[in-house]
Write a protein that binds this DNA or RNA. Structure first.
Lengths: 369, 369
DNA sequence: CTGAAAGCGCTAACAC
DNA sequence: GTGTTAGCGCTTTCAG
């Protein structure tokens, strides 16, 4: 299709019998320009609805004012929120964000990163699915000298800034919360990602050991990362002979599936089994059983990552101090774990609070370690 | 910060004692090139990890292979899904998507559209918040000759392709469903957007009139577009003296809020009041009361919009037949309206199905019109 | 088959 | 204050 010729600087310049440079200077407020020509130029630009061609400008300045953002899936509320926060921070500083996704496929991640670089993004933000940082991919990134920062998922061995929560602490906090609610037989429906899921598992173990209990390997089961896989995993785990009074789920979708499975097989949540998720996904408090979860501050992650990256992009010196920003996580307690001062024997469909007592051996408050 | 010089065609050309043009031709599979030089070029490109500079290419070809996407909020699951579907379709054809948002602010929408155009996107997809198509904004778009398609929200008077559901039909389908469930006092919690919300309201009225009932203006109340505003609107509406047995909500978040308000004031959902939403947002079936909703086919919207736009972008001729694609909507029945063959008097906490009867005057099946 | 010349629309550096 | 010259890295056209 024949596109219309957009008006360009040369048109303005010709109309006004000035040079292109003069127009350019006016538009960028650079150099010395008399007020009169300045006004004439501005006027004509308005009349002709002139819009500078940013592609041409980018080629000349070697700056696109574009950040690349590479995510597993920007449909996921957690990442969507991060993306928005990045876009917001970037917009305030005159940048746009080119978002791409790779559906957890490391190969697609690499090829997308490459085209993002080919498009000359000024910097890159990456929630990577690469398993290690010594790969050709990260060497390529380093060679390119385009600044980049990793978010959410730390990749071992990568020399770059990182912004995200402490996943070990999330595992510990979630599990400790269950312990504080009196749970003593806590399963963990773990996720698939090597790094994060391992960290959360570690936190789970640390919390249990801090209570001088034993973490039983059988109580850790793989649960994918979706409601359906969480449901399946929970069903497969349930067994009349197995004791269970708490479940720490890798994420909220899994937790939703787990709760469904539990209720279907006659367990009451939270009275029989308390369930905690992670991610604090939208609608978590409109669920059938409002879900206790751990918020991972997506806004802060996005904001901090964008700020860090933009500072690197805009700094003239090549000081590239890699920084690690750990954003806060916090427990959001909802109904799925609310049984604080109840012992199992005391629980009836109706509330019977006053009668609850803590048995010896159950430590209250912060556990040691 | 001093960025490293990336390797460019001139480097390859110099190394191989050929011209830049030759390299360019090899890389684009154009023109006649001997197999030997072809291989030498490819080889050297690989060795030097050459990546073509797409900015430079864009300047020369006047094609960026970038689509602009302007949404009210890409964090909203409906739009997020559309965005993903667009990105997917675009990627398959070698395009990226530059996504931007405007938080329902028409002024931001305009300025963002302008920078997207300044960045020379090849086409634009727009879920617009503009109220009419005869504005300077759309004249500007037309002047630019950059093809664009409107999605989800039709803007009256705009000459462009449109892809979306039929909002009148959605209102009619939702309301008819409530009527078929036996509801006779149906409120509508309406949304704020001029166009869409009005269309749905129209559908609501049509459905009611098709049952030879009267649509009472008081039963239509403004409910914003969020859970909280839906909750507030429902609370404000509830009144012991007002008869109510069904609510059609503009969207799912409002419906979630409405259900909460209803239950808090002692109404059972769906036994006393049936509730239907629209949008079929994620997690709708994990909610406290699984929500009946109308799915709006975000994937089809995204896919069709991208396809339409790319066809326009890539067509050499200037045939710009504007097309309107109405994607299907469908009712997803869940618990919030499941009381098909019950009359109000028959309802008890436990099910008492067999006894239900339809009264005269209640037509079964498709209403006339 | 290959390459020289010109240009995409803008900016940077330096004259005048 | 303003203009000239020389690119940015690529593609296009056309001559050889």
């Amino acid at each position: 299709m024949l596109r219309a010729m957009a008006v360009k600087m040369a048109d303005i310049a010709a109309d006004l019998h000035v040079s292109v440079v003069t127009v350019s200077k006016v538009l960028r407020n650079k150099g010395r320009i008399s007020e009169s020509t300045r006004q004439r130029v501005l006027q004509r630009c308005r009349e002709l609805h002139y819009q500078p061609n940013l592609i041409a400008r980018s080629l000349a300045t070697r700056r696109t004012h574009t950040l690349g953002l590479l995510l597993p899936d920007f449909t996921h509320p957690f990442f969507a929120q991060i993306a928005k926060s990045i876009a917001q921070t970037a917009r305030a500083r005159g940048y746009h964000v080119l978002i791409s996704y790779f559906d957890e496929d490391p190969a697609i991640e690499i090829s997308e990163a490459q085209t993002l670089l080919a498009r000359c993004v000024d910097g890159l933000i990456l929630a990577s699915a690469q398993s290690h940082g010594r790969s050709e991919f990260f060497r390529m990134l380093a060679r390119r000298r385009t600044p980049f920062v990793l978010i959410d998922r730390h990749v071992p061995g990568v020399r770059a800034s990182f912004v995200g929560v402490d996943h070990v602490e999330i595992g510990r906090m979630a599990t400790t919360h269950l312990l504080e609610q009196g749970c003593r037989h806590i399963a963990h429906l773990r996720g698939p990602d090597l790094g994060i899921a391992d960290d959360r598992l570690r936190g789970y173990r640390l919390a249990i050991e801090a209570y001088e209990l034993r973490a039983i390997p059988d109580y850790v089961v793989d649960a994918g990362f979706q409601t359906q896989t969480g449901y399946d995993a929970m069903r497969a785990f349930l067994n009349p002979r197995i004791k269970l009074d708490g479940v720490f789920c890798y994420n909220d979708p899994i937790a939703v599936g787990a709760i469904k499975a539990l209720r279907e097989s006659g367990h009451r949540v939270p009275q029989d089994v308390a369930v905690v998720g992670a991610g604090n996904v939208n609608y978590a408090d409109a669920l059938e059983v409002p879900l206790t979860s751990i918020d991972q501050s997506p806004d802060e992650i996005g904001h901090e990552a964008a700020k860090l990256l933009l500072d690197q992009v805009e700094s003239e010196s090549s000081r590239r101090r890699n920084r690690t920003v750990v954003v806060p996580h916090r427990l959001i307690v909802r109904a799925s774990t609310q049984r604080s001062s109840l012992r199992r024997g005391d629980l009836r469909p109706g509330r019977k609070l006053g009668t609850a007592l803590r048995r010896t051996g159950v430590r209250v408050g912060r556990p040691p370690g």
